[in-house]
Design a protein around this nucleic acid. Structure first.
Lengths: 335, 335
DNA sequence: ACATCATATCGAACCGGTTCGGTAAATGAT
DNA sequence: ATCATTTACCGAACCGGTTCGATATGATGT
């Protein structure tokens, strides 16, 4: 392995000059610069990022932490962030918290120890204490999808109340009144907001909500399955179900199929977020989708900006809220 | 940030003793060890992984490089490798090559520069030159899914010819003779082997293969879509289609739906690999699935072993071949 | 009592860069 | 011609650990 010293010797300059040439070429005489570049070329010198990180106290790695990489939504965001980061010379270190707040915290601390330049985080922890933890983190963090109140960080996400408001209004318009709602984990930002969107819209339309039709599916496949089962085995089952995310929505569809209900003839279904092969799923599901790519793009830009300049790093946190899009499928039907 | 020097000062020992206490506690006097541990506790000292990496010349990071994290197959493997690695104190750095060999190579070099301890790789490059590149890599590599001939590395994968042999035999048994095959990128190990499995089985059964029914879908959604379209718009279209992976298989299903063909009544369909929500897709697709978890487990174990001991690192490369499992769905029908 | 050996600890070199303060020469102002 | 300023480059300290060879101390064998 050739080091900066080898290059310096070959070019007949000091190592600090080589370092200068590497980092701010304009501060080095043209002729010297040329000799150094020759030396670099001929030795095949590659800078050692580990040594650089140690010396600088900051690496050129960006962390991406989310709950579930398998979920298309996060996958799309990841891809976009990766794309932007690579364009700026950053490498993306991906970590999957599996939705566990304790693991997530451990991962964040580990990333920090790696002197990571910045972190894009879809938080799964919540509460006062977690907010403090995030607020006091020294590494720049841009949060996406999940907002943690009090964390005082940039946030990029969707108008979550609107997602379920749209779906609820749609179902109300079709004449549905008994609407089952499979919520996400309470305490989680998007889950709470989506639930709120549903409740407020129902209330706003003057429709009574049967509290037993509002269940918590934890955003997971298994949770969604269990809760959908509870909803659909009742005598007075709902005429429509809203899944607060793609996992629970599809789990509900699965339960319908397993129980022999036809969708939408027997029960209507709508959900938040898309899945990769939704167009080969019968029926095509009515959903509200978020612009994951735009979301990733904004998050990446914000993070990279904060990393790049101290002024940007000091700027007060901002929220970027995207408007979700309604996609009518064939899983919802007039009552 | 407290450093090892702070700990040493507080414990009244030299820094080398602290380092010893950290790495091989038995070599330090019990009483001294105790003082050091007290000092560590009271200062909240955390070892700096970057400095450690620089000094040791090796980090405690493991790289995971694959084509498509979004694909459930790779996602499952990743999860398993991550699980094993974390258990051994390793952090997993994930990189997505998007199936581009040049990018993959750049990623590998970048990982190596990070002094990564080992790499689990689903290669996308192929050919003599790429094999040499992999063979001469200094970092331990365990390859999975895609075998590169000549790379001389451990390999964990499935019996790929068998995957398509099973599907082809199944279709032959149902009376199909005109079978369309949407292959993966030629040159890619699994793609070639799966194609071979199909060809040999057909030949073995004495069935003539119409070469125009064998198309290359590149394992991608778009490629699969285009090729399925070609197959299904022909007057003498096949009575059954095999997708060499999940993407192309589902793409074929999508084309059938778009063109108004019913599956399996008009065309039968079978594919290699599962997708997350296959059980809500109508019809349930007949497929051959790989044991991704087992595969990830084996790959991780092998890699961790090679990392852990020099003897294991020097051991000759081995192949681990898993037997895939047939899952009969409703997408294939007697002719 | 003396040579032998294991044990506990330390000092110093090293990993490969960055960065700050300083010097000498070149440029510019007056 | 004189002084101030800029430019080009260097030396040395530093980032925070690991590791090897050396040393001092005490235990063991005879």
């Amino acid at each position: 392995m050739t080091t900066i010293r080898d290059v310096a010797r070959l070019a007949g300059v000091s190592i600090s000059t080589v370092s200068l040439a590497l980092n701010s070429p304009k501060r080095v005489g043209v002729e010297t610069l040329d000799r150094i570049q020759q030396a670099i070329k001929s030795t095949g010198y590659r800078i050692d990022p580990v040594a650089q990180t140690l010396a600088r106290g900051r690496s050129s790695l960006i962390g991406f932490v989310s709950a579930n990489l398998g979920n298309m939504f996060f996958g799309d965001i990841r891809r976009e962030i990766e794309h932007q980061a690579l364009g700026h010379g950053y490498f993306v270190l991906i970590a999957d918290s599996s939705g566990r707040a304790d693991l997530e915290r451990a991962l964040l601390e580990r990333l920090e120890a790696q002197k990571i330049a910045g972190i894009a985080l879809a938080a799964n922890g919540h509460g006062e204490e977690y907010a403090t933890f995030l607020r006091d983190f020294k590494t720049p963090i841009v949060m996406f999808d999940q907002k943690v109140e009090g964390a005082e960080r940039d946030f990029v996400g969707s108008d979550n109340p609107l997602t379920t408001t749209i779906l609820t209004e749609h179902l109300l318009q079709l004449g549905h009144r008994r609407i089952g709602f499979i919520s996400g984990p309470s305490g989680l930002h998007t889950a709470d907001e989506r639930l709120k969107g549903f409740m407020n819209t129902m209330a706003g339309a003057g429709v009574d909500i049967d509290p037993s039709l509002v269940v918590e599916g934890g955003y997971t496949r298994t949770g969604g399955h269990a809760q959908a089962m509870r909803l659909l085995t009742r005598r007075d089952r709902p005429t429509a179900i809203i899944g607060a995310n793609n996992m629970t929505g599809l789990a509900a569809l699965q339960v319908m199929q397993e129980m022999g209900f036809r969708c939408p003839d027997d029960v209507s279904l709508a959900m938040v977020d898309d899945v990769p092969w939704s167009n080969v799923i019968t029926p095509r599901i009515t959903m509200v989708v978020q612009d994951a790519q735009k979301l990733g793009e904004l998050a990446a830009q914000r993070l990279l900006a904060r990393i790049a300049s101290p002024e940007a790093a000091a700027a007060p946190p901002e929220d970027f809220i995207l408007t979700p899009r309604f996609v009518r499928g064939e899983s919802t039907k007039r009552l």
